[in-house]
């Protein structure tokens, strides 16, 4: 196991380098000029050239890439071209809301979706199955911003139960923190609950068709025991895969959720930085995202071997 983990971690290094270089190139090829954004509407060509020079953007792309790599190795992610705030500080300031949102969403998803899928599979074709499936389909038939608006409209404006927007770090009290997290998590988990419930259901149905389940059934094992003991365990691989993919692709939903509920997280930062061509910030974030992504995948792959001893590396 350990050599495998080590191997995977090492193989992540080239992935991260490729990602970093691709993003670097993509950004520099994209039309858009941080100097124009900095100087504002009525800047002349000469002013722009001066600003570009002072930011080091007039250097050849390869030189800029080399400088950036050199700084990364010494642990320096640079400063935002616009605000001059260090990238590490910007990320540190904004990682909290995103982490809270992501962890909340994943927990809710797992707690709700897997039981839903199991129940549906157990009552295949029955009313419960249909209701669960209909609900889960609805979950990803509506864009997150619409779900968000509806939730805010009812729970915050009409009923007045929860705040409309904003974020409080847990250090300022657990209640205010959770209070502001409920609606965003609900809005965001809809899609994932739908996805995971469906996959759970179909994987379990599939496993229930396997010979050993039929054998267990023939031996007189009860339906619930089969479902929980055999089916769930064997259906775990695709479920874990989907959850892993879900976490990795969470960021798109996070961007929208953070916008609708005004959470000052990384999702908004990444979009703002792309639109403003704030290169150091984007590159820093990409490093962070790819690192997180690789970590999650590693965990997923290890879980495969736990759930399904047939898969070995």
């Amino acid at each position: 196991m350990l050599p495998y983990v080590l191997k995977r971690v090492l193989s992540a290094v080239p992935v991260m380098i490729i990602v970093a270089v691709v993003i670097f190139a993509l950004l520099r090829l994209t039309p858009g000029d941080p100097a124009a954004i900095l100087a504002g509407n009525d800047a002349t060509g000469e002013q722009l050239a001066q600003i570009r020079e002072s930011l080091g953007l007039d250097e050849p792309i390869l030189v800029q890439l080399a400088t950036w790599c050199k700084n990364i190795i010494s642990g320096d992610l640079g400063v935002s071209l616009l605000s001059g705030v260090p990238v590490t500080k910007m990320i540190a300031d904004r990682v909290g809301p995103t982490l809270a949102l992501a962890v909340g969403t994943i927990s809710v998803t797992i707690l709700v979706a897997i039981p839903m899928g199991i129940v549906a599979a157990g009552r295949l074709g029955g009313y419960l199955d249909r209701i669960v499936m209909a609900l889960s389909v609805l979950g990803f038939s509506v864009p997150i911003f619409v779900t968000g608006y509806v939730l805010i409209y009812f729970f915050s404006l009409k009923l007045g139960w929860l705040p409309v927007q904003g974020y409080r770090p847990p250090s300022e009290g657990l209640f205010p923190f959770l209070q502001r997290l409920v609606l965003p998590v609900l809005a965001l988990s809809g899609v994932y609950i739908a996805l995971v419930a469906r996959i759970t259901r179909s994987s379990i149905i599939e496993v229930l068709g396997e010979d050993y389940i039929r054998t267990a059934r023939a031996k007189g094992a009860t339906g619930r025991r089969i479902l929980l003991r055999h089916a769930l365990r064997n259906a775990a691989v695709p479920i874990v895969t989907i959850i892993g993919i879900g976490i990795a692709s969470l960021i798109t939903g996070v961007v929208v959720t953070e916008s609708v509920f005004n959470l000052p997280g990384l999702g908004r930062l990444v979009v703002e930085a792309v639109l403003a061509r704030d290169y150091p910030v984007i590159q820093g974030l990409i490093l962070l995202f790819s690192f997180t992504y690789i970590l999650i995948n590693l965990v997923v792959d290890i879980l495969y071997t736990v759930f399904d001893p047939r898969i070995r590396y």
Partner: peptide, 13 residues
């Protein structure tokens, strides 16, 4: 690893 590379870049970005 190539797929990882593509997936590691947030799709929205």
């Amino acid at each position: 690893r190539t797929m990882d590379g593509i997936m590691a870049i947030p799709s929205i970005l």
